[in-house]
């Protein structure tokens, strides 16, 4: 009985912690169902008649559909390209112990550390010269590049964890190397792939500045739309901000909900040994 009470208390505390972190998000979600006056009113309105008008307004605006589609396409394709490229590289680094491995891994990581404003300058200069600005390939491949470093790191950890005996057996049995790569090793690093996918997807999904500078009107993604359309009739358009934010947060939240186990295992960089 006493132990049961302690467990319940422990569980309640856990839920409280989770809800504290969620509270501001909850407030944003509530706002999406309020009118502007209700959003700004103090004391805050906890009880109100929810309205769907904001969402109706959102989807009747021109271009919002395009922005969401851009966000989905650009981030998904960029991260997929990055995963394929990174998986090949991770396999090579893990299996063939190339001399340059640590050097390349190192450079990959330090690139990711440079402030966005710094890394976008040369790319901007290059895109201006080549006319790649505001093109889907230009945008997608740039984001792919940004997703590669972390993906290589995480996948190398997982490929390291796959015994080389599988490779050998596969080759001995007459499979090609690519067959070993994609049919034998790939399925075993799935958690790493999922984790890398979600992690990078969240980054690209929410990224603002690169899209603002090297994107343009055809490749605008939602974060840029949020900032550029946030003002209306002389005030911040809170209802638009709230409703678009809510729509926009659904995919990553669903991904984290459904792939949570993979995500937790994935973030171990392939070193999982215990229970998560």
């Amino acid at each position: 009985m006493h132990k049961g009470f302690k467990t319940t208390l422990y569980h309640i505390i856990l839920w409280i912690v989770a809800l504290i972190f969620f509270a501001p998000v909850f407030w944003i979600i509530l706002s999406a169902f309020k009118t502007k006056d209700q959003i700004l009113s103090i004391p805050p309105k906890w009880f109100f008649t929810p309205t769907l008008a904001n969402f109706v307004d959102l989807f009747t605006r021109p271009n919002v559909g395009t922005y969401i589609r851009n966000s989905l396409l650009i981030s998904a394709i960029a991260v997929l390209i990055a995963l394929v490229v990174s998986f090949l590289a991770a396999y090579a680094f893990s299996r063939f112990k190339l001399k340059s491995t640590s050097l390349i891994m190192f450079f990959l990581l330090s690139i990711r550390m440079v402030p966005a404003a710094a890394s976008v300058i040369p790319v901007f200069l290059m895109y201006v010269a080549l006319g790649w600005k505001d093109t889907y390939p230009g945008m997608t491949l740039f984001y792919a590049m940004f997703s590669i470093p972390f993906s290589v790191w995480i996948l190398k950890g997982f490929v390291d964890g796959v015994s080389e005996r599988f490779d050998e057996t596969g080759l001995v049995n007459g499979g090609s190397r690519l067959h070993v790569l994609f049919d034998v090793v790939l399925p075993q690093v799935r958690p790493g792939l999922v984790a890398a996918f979600i992690f990078n997807m969240v980054f690209v999904w929410n990224e603002y500045m690169f899209n603002y500078i090297i994107g343009g009107k055809t490749t605008t993604t939602v974060p840029v739309a949020l900032v550029t359309w946030m003002l209306n009739q002389g005030g911040v358009d809170w209802t638009f901000m709230a409703s678009l934010t809510v729509v926009f947060m659904i995919p990553p939240i669903l991904a984290v909900y459904f792939f949570q186990k993979y995500l937790l295992i994935g973030m171990t960089f392939g070193t999982v040994r215990g229970e998560i």
Partner: peptide
């Protein structure tokens, strides 16, 4: 291998 088609996409 199905996944092998992807580098081509890149």
């Amino acid at each position: 291998a199905p996944a092998a088609a992807e580098p081509a996409k890149a």
